[in-house]
């Protein structure tokens, strides 16, 4: 009994473990949105894509028995959502923020509608990599039992950081995002770039949903998302469209989210609603501290309607 009792050490460990467990959906949605917003378009509807992705992944995993097929199906569904959004927003006078909010409703509605028969069955879960077997503490083992998608998300953030700066598609994306006219002058079709960027963003957001339903919490029901999709879109602005910052912001957000339950499990139980608000308070505080009225948001794509 005693060798498994780690007392107060459980708190930092729980925060670390929580950061890793909870952050993955934020990582994928915010990376997807970073790509979309870098192209000068905003997709506020990724919450709907995330939930639809969660449902699709779960349903396909139940039907085929393969969680990875579920992830692929979610990506395809997310890409379709992105394509719809991208296609509609290329028309003049169409407001991308408004369409995003409508798409959110659309995604939630159809996910709940089509997902009804899949609430009861259990789906096979995504595998995780046990990195903590060196430790004799089950808590450490559990904390370091990390899902593959987390590592993919980490690698993706590094890759995108590099690719935005050093590759031709990255350059094209940034040119389109900064100025539609400049892109046209360079012979780039901005609509096509934005369409692809929105589709890519959608498919990544759906992977975030697949993580929710197939790994953690690992269940499909109508309360599966507590606004992760919407919050992740906000985190992109917080992270100044920098993929590595997106990753770190997601970790920070996930870690502070685990603070409440971790403190309670060791008996600090006063004011628990306020502990649950900690991630939001911290994000807001950092945002206020790092913003400045004298310069525009550094790194903001020039053609982005949200920050104009």
């Amino acid at each position: 009994m005693d060798e498994t009792n780690i007392g107060l050490w459980g708190v930092p460990l729980a925060i670390l473990a929580g950061a890793i467990r909870v952050s993955t959906p934020f990582i994928f949605v915010s990376l997807g949105e970073a790509i979309t917003e870098r192209s000068g378009r905003i997709n506020l509807g990724l919450e709907g894509t995330l939930v639809f992705g969660a449902m699709t992944a779960y349903a396909v995993a139940v039907l085929t028995g393969s969680p990875w097929l579920g992830v692929l199906a979610a990506m395809a569904a997310g890409a379709v959502f992105g394509l719809i959004h991208g296609f509609i927003c290329r028309f003049p006078r169409v407001n991308d923020i408004a369409i995003g909010i409508a798409m959110m409703q659309f995604g939630l509605g159809f996910a709940f509608f089509l997902g009804k028969p899949f609430i009861q069955p259990s789906a096979p879960k995504l595998p995780s990599i046990p990195l903590g077997n060196w430790s004799s503490y089950p808590q450490v083992q559990a904390a370091l039992n990390i899902n593959v998608l987390f590592f993919i998300g980490f690698a993706l953030s590094l890759f995108l950081f590099w690719a935005f700066r050093n590759t031709r598609p990255g350059l094209i994306l940034r040119v389109v995002g900064d100025s539609t006219d400049a892109a046209r002058a360079m012979g780039i079709n901005p609509d096509r770039v934005r369409l692809l960027a929105t589709a890519l963003g959608g498919s990544l957001a759906a992977v975030g949903g697949a993580y929710l339903s197939l790994y953690y919490p690992g269940s499909w029901n109508e309360g599966i998302s507590s606004g992760q999709g919407l919050m992740a879109v906000a985190l992109v602005i917080f992270a100044r469209w920098n993929p590595i910052h997106c990753f770190l912001a997601a970790l920070l957000f996930g870690g502070t989210g685990a603070l409440g339950p971790a403190l309670k499990s060791v008996g600090v139980t006063q004011g628990y609603y306020l502990f649950y608000a900690a991630p939001y308070v911290l994000t807001l505080a950092i945002l206020i501290a790092t913003s400045s009225p004298h310069r525009a948001l550094s790194g903001a794509p020039g053609a982005l309607s949200l920050t104009k």
Partner: peptide, 15 residues
């Protein structure tokens, strides 16, 4: 869902 999962994990972490 997510808070319930976190709470469960926090409990198991405490033994």
């Amino acid at each position: 869902a997510i808070k319930e999962a976190e709470a469960t994990n926090a409990l198991v972490d405490q033994g």
